[in-house]
Simulated assay, not measured.
Amino acid sequence: MTHVVAQPCDGCRYTDCVVVCPVECFYEGEKMLYIHPEECIDCEACVPECPVEAIFHEDNLPEEWKDYLQLNAEKSETCEVITEKKTPLAED
């Protein structure tokens, strides 16, 4: 099981979640973050840290955002890992 970054992160890319992740499973894309599904340990530490409520357990992912499960898996393979807080796109 894994957590998934969904549509509310697109264009915001807040990074509050990455600093609390104990396994460094977040990856930085151009417009949003992604969670590597095989690295996520389901600790849920990231969920309350997301100011736009974009992180969901895969079982609770809203139907309209189901495609984000596959997108996170694909993008986390090609993007760079992120472990430090950065200025979000919403504030650039």
Rank of each mutant, 00 (worst) to 15 (best):
C9R: 07
E58F: 08
E39K: 15
N60K: 14
L71I: 15
C50A: 06
V19D: 07
Q7V: 13
C46H: 03
T15P: 01
F26S: 06
C25M: 06
N72W: 05
P88N: 05
V18I: 07
H57P: 05
E74L: 06
A45I: 02
L61W: 01
L71T: 13
C17H: 06
P22R: 00
E74I: 11
E24I: 06
M1I: 09
H57T: 10
I82W: 03
W65E: 10
C21T: 08
C46P: 04
E84C: 04
N72F: 01
L71N: 02
A73N: 11
K86V: 06
A54D: 08
C12N: 10
Q70H: 10
V23Y: 03
A45S: 09
L89F: 01
D10Y: 15
L33A: 03
Y68N: 09
P48F: 04
I82V: 11
E80A: 15
C12Y: 11
D42M: 15
L71V: 15
D10Q: 13
D42S: 14
E63C: 01
P51I: 06
D92S: 09
R13G: 03
E39T: 12
D16K: 15
V5N: 02
C79K: 14
E44G: 03
Y27K: 12
M32E: 07
Y68R: 07
V81R: 08
D92G: 12
P8F: 02
